[in-house]
Every structure is written in structure tokens, then in C-alpha cells.
Design a protein around this nucleic acid. Sequence first.
DNA 1: GACTATTCTCGTCAACAAGACGAATATTGG
DNA 2: CCAATATTCGTCTTGTTGACGAGAATAGTC
Lengths: 236, 236
Amino acid sequence: MPEPDEWTIPEVAVAVDLAVLTVHDNSLQIMLVKRGIPPFEAMLALPGGFLASTSEDLDHAAARELQEETGLDAQALHLEQLRTYGTPGRDPRRRVITVCYVAFSPQLPVPVAGGDAREAVLMPVEKVLKPRTRIAFDHKKIIADAVERARSKLEYTTLAAAFCAPEFTMTDLREVYEIVWGEQLDPRNFHRKIIGVDGFLIPTGKRVSRQPGRPAALYRRGPATALHPAMLRFRP
Amino acid sequence: MPEPDEWTIPEVAVAVDLAVLTVHDNSLQIMLVKRGIPPFEAMLALPGGFLASTSEDLDHAAARELQEETGLDAQALHLEQLRTYGTPGRDPRRRVITVCYVAFSPQLPVPVAGGDAREAVLMPVEKVLKPRTRIAFDHKKIIADAVERARSKLEYTTLAAAFCAPEFTMTDLREVYEIVWGEQLDPRNFHRKIIGVDGFLIPTGKRVSRQPGRPAALYRRGPATALHPAMLRFRP
DNA sequence: GACTATTCTCGTCAACAAGACGAATATTGG
DNA sequence: CCAATATTCGTCTTGTTGACGAGAATAGTC
């Protein structure tokens, strides 16, 4: 560790990027913005941007960019750090390292697109991750990592409820799993499993019937965050 | 996203820090170095340092610092990114964000301490994480996160073998679990579980008897990386 | 109102994995 | 040779999961 004198320490630009995932229209979707300036002008990219100042906290920068570019409120949204991407050359202009965050959102209230963003759109990740689809910078890789994070967290946490409205049915919750994992689950076994996890769901006592069929019980998110034992993907 | 002109983008110093974990002397230990300069002079800290230049890759910086400060070879060591810490004020001199890596090492070959480091020492994490123990910067929090990463990865990956010598016995492997988790495991059930995981272990055909008792079979690491189903902590 | 299609919920059974533990095996040390 | 110890195999019981039957409670249709 040659621990250089302060003026010899190289400095680089630091950005934050956000992978906001939501379940919508029967698919897992991600929020993207159309870039208004080069490089990658007019291409789709993750919302994000540089630190506002050298003293801005990373988490604060993430929350701020989320608000500015998509109009969403970070407090209501479970923002967590994903990982940091810093390969030289990932931004053609200069060295940039970007600290990426993932957020899991229930159905988005507003069609967003307010604020500074030229245009905020939701796109199915299945479509985004297709080899043909071009995404700015290395954001496609970041999106793939974010999706894998979501898939994996459904296994051992109660994250799925974060994709649901404040009150939701067992089927709403199951559909989150089915859509994120791309896999059908047995409604009866799923019901038994979830009911058996202490503190996952709180019954509201209310019922809704949105389709023909027996009305479903409405639940709220419970205090539990971990699933023990886990609910694993990949059938044996 | 006001996407500032390039010269208005704030730049910050970027460091990498390394949490090198190993199982030694019946406890989970972490590699620390004694700082030779302020701030936190003479205190223990994670090995690490600033990027060598604005064009150095993060992974490369991590491997280089590992080599420089501890003499260990990154190629042989499973280096993975942990997370990035960037709270303003975490370095009293100036704004620094640090991209942290974890490494999992078998018994260390050399007593290390070569290279640039003033002094590299192994310390039990149990001792490091005690409230009384003072560690430079926010490195105690980083160490806690690294330990939790290790504990959690033992559950659903074959990581434990990375803590073992190239050839090891079932008991060696079990002791890694017991030491990292701080929990006793039944040798018979553990044996059955591990043997049942395809590709975790490759029998060498050899045996060793290092104690009184039946000699143990020697294994090498197999190609498997995932444990399905997982081996969970926390008994029901 | 009766009937049907549909969906939610509860329950059963078999397959499988895991915890508890008995016991055979193969060594060290006396 | 004997005791102590560690490794490995096997058994029994318990709990979880997958597959699936069946009742409950609705919407829509005639």
C-alpha cells in the first residue's frame, strides 16, 4: 500500500443507476429512460446520474435520481444496493464507476415520465434481455443481475409482497412468483406454504371477488422478512 | 437527470478494500493490517488502497492490493465483490468511496506480512466484532457484512470447500461449517448430506489418519457450485 | 332461481429430506 | 490385546413438498 499523498490519488466520476422492477401486465418489467444526449443518445438506459456533489451520500443520490427521473418516492420503495460496475471504457467519455441499486415496486401509481426524464417507460425484462435489444452502456448486464437478484430473493425472503398493492390476495402473491420466476406454481401447495410462514401475511378479514369463483381473502404485508425454510426454484 | 457538462461532474477518490477470511486455529479469522500513517495510525484496518490510476479496473485493483498488502495470489482465491461503502465522512481526510471485496482462503501458506504492508495479521472475527475492539474507518461494519456473506453462502453453495486445503476430509469440511456458523453439526447427518450432493466432492481414493480413530477418506473439490437443496442454518 | 364454470381453500397421500441416534469399521495409544 | 476415538453406514421418526381430490363461494347465463 504506497498510500499516496493526497494530491496523487486518482479521482473518478461516480454515478448511481437504478433498476426499478415491477410486475405489470403479466410480466416482470423494468423502468427505463430514453437518453436525451450522447453518448447512446435516444437509446434506452437505466435511470441514474452522477453524484450531485462530492459530499452526497450514495443512498441519497439513488433516492434523488429515482425521484428526479421517474417521480417515484424512494421511501416507499425498498431500495437496496446491487453492486458496483467500473470496467474502464464502459462510458466512452471518461472513467465512470456506477453504484447500482435495485428497487421493487408494486403497480406504479402514475404513468411516471415526469420530472427531468425525457421519457420513462416500462419494458418487460424478457424483451430487454433479448440479444437483439440494444441498451445503453453496460446496462443490459446490470438489468440481468438485478433480475437474478429479484428471483433469488423471492426464494428466501418475503420480497414478493413488495410487488403487491398494500392489500392483496394469495393469488396476487402467487402470480408475482410465477411471473418473476417464469414458472407455474400449484395454487394449493403455494397457499399452504405461505400460510405456514409466521408473519408473512396479516389477514384483513376482508374478501374480494374480482372474477367468477370463490372470493379471495385480502392480506397485508406482515413483519417477517425471511422465509424459513426457503421456497426453492428448480423442481427436482 | 440534469446530465451536467463534463467539467461539472464531481469526482471522488475510489478505493478497494479486501475482507480475506480464513479458517484457522478453530476460528474464523480475517486478515488485517496495521496502519502506518494517519488517519487511524497504528490501528487495524482491512487491506486495501486507492486505484492506481483513473483507468485501473476495480477487480484489478482488488487483486493488486491483495498481492501488495498480503502477498496472496488473487487468482487462487475466489475474490468477489461485497458491496460499496460511501458514506460522507467515513474517511476524515476527504470523500472516499470504497468498493469492497471478500475472499475465502484455505489455511494461509506463508505467515504473510510481506510486501508493502507494515504488518499483516490474522484475527478471529469474533474478537474483531466485539464492541470494545476498535477498527479503523467503518471497517468493522464491512467485516460484519463479509462474515454474514460467508455464513449465508455456506447455505446454498459449495463455498466451504474453498476454506479447505486442496485435499481434505469430510471432517475438515464439517469443521468449516461449524466454525463459520458457530454451531455443532451431527457428523453422520452431515456426511450423508454432503455425499448426496452431486459434484461437491471427488474421492481421491486416499485415506489419512491424523488422530486415533478410523482413517478418513480424502476428497478434492468437485465442479458443483450450488447446493440443492440448501443446507440451512437455524434449526426448527 | 337453477345451473355451470371458475376460483379459492382445505385435506389427503406418497415421496423425499432432515434430525436423532445405534452400530459396525478401522485406526492410535497403552 | 484392549480401550478410546473417529469415520462411515444404516434405521427410525418427523417434517416438508409435490400431486391431486374435493368442498366452498362466487359470477355469468339461461
